[in-house]
Nucleic acid binder design. Sequence first.
DNA 1: CCACTCATGTAAAAAGTTACATGATTCG
DNA 2: CGAATCATGTAACTTTTTACATGAGTGG
Lengths: 184, 184
Amino acid sequence: MKPLNKSQHALLGLLTLGPGSGYDLNKLADLSLNHFWRESYGQIYPSLKRLEAAGFVVGSKEAQDGKPDRTVYRITAEGEKVFLAGLREPVAPRPPRNELLLKLFFGTHMSRDEVREHLQSFQRRQQDLFETYQGIEQWLETEQAGKPDLPYWLATVSYGRFEAEAHLRWCEQTLELVKEETRD
Amino acid sequence: MKPLNKSQHALLGLLTLGPGSGYDLNKLADLSLNHFWRESYGQIYPSLKRLEAAGFVVGSKEAQDGKPDRTVYRITAEGEKVFLAGLREPVAPRPPRNELLLKLFFGTHMSRDEVREHLQSFQRRQQDLFETYQGIEQWLETEQAGKPDLPYWLATVSYGRFEAEAHLRWCEQTLELVKEETRD
DNA sequence: CCACTCATGTAAAAAGTTACATGATTCG
DNA sequence: CGAATCATGTAACTTTTTACATGAGTGG
């Protein structure tokens, strides 16, 4: 049995929380993993099929009225086993691809105004993210209090907050570079 | 003319620094963009061909003795134009995919020891990165002093340093979660 | 002389995104 | 009543990674 890829692993993880259709899983991922993981339909459905072929999940067709049929998937005992094994595998760093830095590297080909615009747009995004993370932390602490998963969920969010903070500090420092207006 | 994709844009950027073969570009990218951008041969060669078909670069075959022939590419005036235009395009955030956080999210399915191992391995990597960035900063400041590009190059490196710092602080905080040994 | 790296590149496979299709229902 | 959204999923396309191919030189 060939090893799971990351998407399949993530999907199995979500299915440990309860059964669901591809559509449900997409929704759930949106709510829970959103800030550090994203799956699109184009991956979810084929992945579920391959997981089923491998015996890690089972799907059962359910009729609904007014809505299309849906296939609800459940994780199998075999599936749980490979999910748990996968969790223990070491994490491989993924190749970096940072478009902002690529542009900044060629910064001399832009005017200061143009560089500043890139930086400020990034800054706004990070500011938004930072506030979102704070919101989620608050929400988790009040609405999910007592759950055994809570500390881990909080840790994933605080990761985001730490990063956003660092990005904001970097923005401030880097904006100094392009402080003066360009004369024309 | 369809818009450039990111790889093509990066390659054009490298070619503004001087002509080179696919192999040269790979080497150059390794030295310069390495920390925020990575291209593999599988992308470089086909991209160069498409860039040539579009008229943004021209390749000329050169014979060498003892080594295979090589095709050296130069950026054209047209190519410079689209490169500069691309630089001004806003940066799109790319979908997050953080395997460590995915695993941490399901942390209750692991022992504390196992979680700690993941965190510490990440911590070691970030510590290494941090030191590498410091080294590069020093090197840039001494060896590249006076170059007009220097401030931008430094900014790309300090971005990495800021992030690594934040990751290290997050590690310290998060390791507290799994401080105690698991009893068995 | 054997393994490894240099130097050049191709081809196949996997992963991921985007666009489309369909029919009901609900919102303004 | 038209537009948007829900709910389900497929198909096509793009991007990216990985594995392979080749021949010369080089270090042990």
